[in-house]
Design a protein around this nucleic acid. Structure first.
Lengths: 233, 233
DNA sequence: CCAAAAGTGTTCGAATTACACCCATGA
DNA sequence: TCATGGGTGTAATTCGAACACTTTTGG
């Protein structure tokens, strides 16, 4: 007989807060799905799933993300665990929430649509089921903190991006304007961006230079004790 | 029949990383217990317990802490959730770890001893069961981060303390020396300490003034947008 | 030639760091 | 009186914030 058999067992789920950034609309978005099971079937919710017997939490979250978007190897980090006895009216379910940062353009459209998923603007969210609103708010707060001290903004942008696009992303996430000169001075002084020989020409006549995030260089610096810090006004 | 009956259920535990600070020895300590159940009975471990049906995670952690120390209402915060399939050889157990900061002198001694608990120096930890070492390391790193931006150091000190004691605490946690004048200038400039009319006379002939943390004042400032910041060299 | 967005430097004040001597007291 | 630990100020530098004009180019 089992060792802990005097104790109760519960369902354990993961829920993914999937952030994406729309460059053209300058808008931070969340990937939501119409819930397919009871209770609360048809309501908006985060992408989630129960943890299987042979997988750990990170793997469960990665599986949920892969099934919905076709993406793997993207930024995905545990955020917080929710366990109120009443949080899911169907049963006692604990949920470990994960934050994902993905490049909107990389997503597998058919997969997304067959799952009934939609990008929703963070500035115009519908009410979500259970405590998913709370999960989102916590994830947003954490994102605002983390993006200051880790170069995770690049996870939300394409491989090549302009400084204007990068700054817009920071402005949207922090919900405040940033001084263009101070922002450029700071990010360029870190020596983590490579200027490409190519301009983005959609949004202006002059065109804006494309840059690339030098991830290898960041990893090297980080191991040498360098701390990313992009907290600028 | 239950809604989610196709899915597996698991045990859910909480484990408490209980920090205490020994003023005299200038030493950060951890409250460990000799595990009382199989597997790994008799080995050093964190204080933990299974989550009951009628309680949420915070309540479970508070219960574990209360049973071991007799303390309630102390600093206790969710840290991280561990769910590797192999982490507990006895069964599939998920564990939500909590960091607690307590005042060593407030602890209920009989309770502590009847539970087989001991204070262990962080600089000389025995190996712990399962993934408890990992939990401790994560909690320490988080403590080092948090104590810079939140006034949680006071949770580890008695109600009245000297500036020397406060600085020692910061030095021990950050494991580096801090300049006395800079430290005092910064903490005093925040206007969060009240100088008492009493000196600590055990450790020096001159005696050091006692101070008190003005928690009410901090709460007021915080609501007005003030950010605690005690990152000093 | 002009509208629209990209790109560029400098100045000022505040905050951080580095640093060394005097004070109070009990034994 | 002296050994021990507590307490104090200033100067130099760095860092953060504020701020406005020039460049490019397609239509």
């Amino acid at each position: 007989m089992a060792l802990y058999s005097n104790y109760s067992r519960y369902y354990i789920a993961v829920d993914c807060i999937i952030f994406g950034y729309d460059i053209l609309e300058k808008d931070l978005k969340l990937l939501l799905i119409k819930r397919k099971m009871q209770p609360a079937r048809g309501k908006w919710s985060l992408a989630g799933g129960f943890v299987k017997q042979n997988e750990n939490l990170d793997e469960a979250a990665a599986r949920v993300l892969l099934n919905l978007t076709g993406l793997s190897g993207v930024y995905l980090e545990q955020s917080w665990t929710y366990g109120d006895p009443e949080r899911d009216p169907g049963a006692r379910v604990f949920s470990v929430s994960y934050s994902a940062l993905i490049k909107i353009q990389d997503i597998n459209r058919e997969l997304k649509e067959s799952n009934g998923a939609h990008w929703q603007s963070m500035s115009n969210l519908p009410g979500l089921i259970f405590d998913h609103d709370e999960m989102v708010m916590k994830a947003l707060t954490d994102l605002q903190m983390h993006i200051k001290i880790k170069p995770i903004g690049f996870e939300l942008l394409p491989e090549k991006f302009t400084l204007v696009q990068l700054q817009n992303l920071y402005e949207v996430i922090h919900q405040r304007p940033i001084d263009k000169r101070n922002f450029r001075k700071k990010i360029l002084s870190m020596n983590l961006l490579e200027k490409l020989d190519e301009k983005e020409r959609e949004t202006s006549r002059k065109g804006a230079w494309y840059y690339r995030f030098k991830r290898e260089r960041y990893e090297k610096f980080r191991k040498m004790g360098f701390y990313f810090d992009l907290d600028v006004y």
